[in-house]
């Protein structure tokens, strides 16, 4: 803002980053800070208590983990509507798998964890194959698998709760390490890994290229089929993680659990600045987007706003976030 005329001068001045810093370049960060301040005021003093903050993080981590994978898909130019159903589906299968073992087996927990991630990745691969080899529009393909996953788990469970027999299972999802709940750790670790994948690997660069302009990518000898497929596998993997954490926290899964996760995940990505047209987005943005959704909920509860109005507030934030980004671009 202060030095539009000046040419960016990279290496010579260590402060160049700050001199070239423009508020309008970081709408998500600014929005995050403003929302945080607002929450502190509205929710004073409860909001700032450590317990409350960890609670918010725990609440958003389930959809947040999925949102990280979803960000990759949206950047590659796709979408995945099936993640909510997939989470319930994989969660159910995982408990079935776990119940094959004795009820106090620790190694069963490890195997079940691996099973959940693998089952998620395979489910994601199925979406990816439909989209790339099957050439079905991502919206349609995953709308289809959304129904399929949901219906299968309802059939397997006889529409009732699937209970775990393992007495140790609940320790995974409700565990706390260094004062921070396990799901939050998973969320942060996956975020760091995917951030590096997106920003610093060839695959990440190619995901952006394919999402920005598929033809250009094809003419640049990029294997677009593979590049488009892998984000679905990653997202399936993240859905598997959430399935594990969610089902172990409750020690059971209900076949109607996790519906609407896809919308929260997409919302987090969009609030975080990921373009629905593909080609642009960041993991950091999605993390902020997910946390912002949690803060809004928390703030409304603390402020005593009717729970019926919470969804409206959420919707408003999504629209404002997109408007800010849109106006910033033009």
């Amino acid at each position: 803002m202060n030095n539009d005329r000046q040419q960016p001068n990279r290496d010579s001045n260590p402060f160049s980053y700050f001199r070239n810093f423009r508020i309008s370049d970081h709408p998500t960060g600014i929005g995050f800070i403003l929302l945080f301040i607002l929450a502190v005021i509205v929710g004073w003093p409860t909001f700032l208590q450590l317990r409350n903050l960890t609670n918010i993080l725990r609440q958003i981590s389930y959809t947040g983990i999925i949102a990280l994978g979803m960000t990759m898909i949206i950047i590659s130019g796709g979408i995945d509507l099936s993640v909510g159903s997939m989470t319930a589906f994989v969660g159910g299968l995982t408990i079935f798998f776990l119940n094959l073992f004795p009820s106090d087996s620790v190694s069963a927990l490890i195997l079940a964890s691996i099973f959940a991630m693998a089952a998620g990745a395979v489910s994601g691969l199925f979406n990816g194959i439909l989209v790339t080899k099957g050439r079905i529009a991502p919206f349609i393909a995953t709308l289809g698998t959304m129904s399929i996953f949901r219906s299968l788990i309802q059939y397997f469970s006889g529409a009732g709760n699937i209970l775990s027999n393992n007495i140790l299972y609940a320790d995974i999802g409700s565990g706390v390490f260094l004062g921070i709940p396990v799901p939050v750790w998973v969320f942060l670790i996956v975020a760091v890994i995917l951030h590096i994948v997106l920003e610093n690997t060839r695959f990440g660069r190619y995901v952006c290229a394919v999402g920005a302009n598929e033809q250009v990518a094809r003419y640049s000898a990029i294997r677009i089929q593979i590049i488009k497929m892998i984000p679905y596998v990653i997202t399936g993997f993240t859905a598997g993680l959430t399935a594990l954490l969610w089902s172990s926290r409750l020690n059971c899964i209900n076949p109607s659990d996790c519906s609407g996760y896809e919308l929260d995940a997409i919302a987090a990505a969009v609030i975080g600045g990921t373009s629905m047209n593909g080609g642009k987005g960041s993991i950091i943005g999605t993390v902020m987007g997910a946390v912002m959704l949690g803060i809004i909920n928390n703030m409304l509860v603390l402020g005593g706003v009717s729970s019926y109005l919470q969804q409206a507030a959420r919707g408003l934030v999504i629209i404002v976030a997109v408007l800010l980004q849109y106006n910033n671009k033009n």
């Binding site: 290229a209 920005a212 094809r218 990029i222 642009k280």
Partner: peptide, 17 residues
């Protein structure tokens, strides 16, 4: 349509292949 990624920087475009 088939050559440049207009949202990529110069260096990202040059090293694409």
């Amino acid at each position: 349509g088939k050559g440049i990624v207009s949202d990529f920087t110069i260096s990202q475009n040059i090293t694409l292949i």
